[in-house]
Simulated assay, not measured.
Amino acid sequence: MAKHTKAYIALVFICIVWGTTYLFIRLGVEHYPAFLFAGVRQVISALIIMALGLAMAKKVDLSWASIKHQALVGFLLITVGNGLVTWAEKYVPSGVAALICSLMPIITVMINLASAKGERPNPSILLGTLVGFSGVALIFRDNIADLANTQYLLGMLGLLCATSSWSLGSVINKRHQFPTNPVFNSGLQLMFGGIFLLIASPAFDSYENVFTWHAGAFWSLLYLIIFGSVAAYTAYMYALKELPVGLVATYAYVNPLVAVILGYLILDEQLTWYTALSFAAIMTGVYMVNRGYIRKHLAARREKERAKEVLPTPVTTGSK
């Protein structure tokens, strides 16, 4: 097989599978409590990924510093991020959920800029942020009648909170990495996040009909564990290893499109011109912010290189 062909196949797999997870989450929470459903999914996925990590490399970092870090990231990414998305899909269409979650790259860049000293957004980042959030405004405009429904409104706010938490967790995880066995560490994050979800479940979930068998919900859970978590994560790590990060990041543009189309075809979710305009605005915003952020870093790198060039060469006077 030609060089990188497998990596491109892995990228296509990620684009499609992670786009379908919104549909299968929706199918699952129609019958089972959201936090319980998400918690079971993440704990089982964590066990599989941790086992894979141990099979790949026996050495693991179980220091207190590493445990605290994985627990914090797991809470932000999985408990709040994935948990609130799963809960929100009980009240918000899966396509809408995917569109709002696609703001994650924009929010991540804004967190990076806000937390770094002396950092200022350039015009491309500012304009991209404005365009991206205008897409969210279009979603609200298209569903303005639904905002009178408290559960729908809370679901939309929950999605924004989940996306912000996922972005914050991603920034923290990137800045404070523990290099020993990253696959096992990711499984540990899923484990902590899943356990926190199971702890939160009795406070937020209704257990009515929880023991009723629903084949569709069961197969959705199985799909999310095998494909949505374990297989897609493995493919993502492989694609990151073999392909440029910027190319792999294009999955963020495809996922919401897949989710919107599947929601329309399978769940009969509403698809209007506002939906199309919202998708176009958010994707344009994400592209502009990413482009602006890349340009900003390239400019900063050139500035450092120029500074090194003008520094005087130290004069040596021999050994003392």
Rank of each mutant, 00 (worst) to 15 (best):
L267E: 01
P182F: 09
N255R: 10
L52E: 01
L198T: 02
W87I: 11
S63D: 05
I49W: 02
I144P: 00
L138V: 14
T150M: 13
A203C: 06
V40K: 02
T21V: 05
V131S: 10
G118Q: 04
F178A: 13
V315I: 13
N209T: 05
P312T: 02
L126E: 06
Q151C: 02
R301D: 14
I16G: 11
E30G: 13
T275C: 11
S134I: 05
H31P: 03
L54M: 11
Y264T: 15
R175M: 10
G39E: 01
A2Q: 09
I25E: 00
A200C: 11
S66E: 08
L257A: 15
V60S: 07
W166H: 09
K308W: 05
L36C: 00
M104S: 15
F204N: 04
A299L: 07
V289F: 08
E303L: 02
K3I: 12
L27S: 04
G28F: 01
A259V: 09
Y287I: 12
Y238T: 10
G19A: 07
G194Q: 01
N209D: 10
I294K: 14
F35H: 03
M237Y: 14
V289L: 06
M110E: 14
R301C: 04
L224I: 04
Y253D: 08
G246N: 14
V289E: 03
H176Q: 12
Q189H: 06
Y152E: 09
A114I: 03
W87V: 10
I49H: 06
Q151E: 14
V245K: 13
Q151W: 11
I199S: 00
V73G: 06
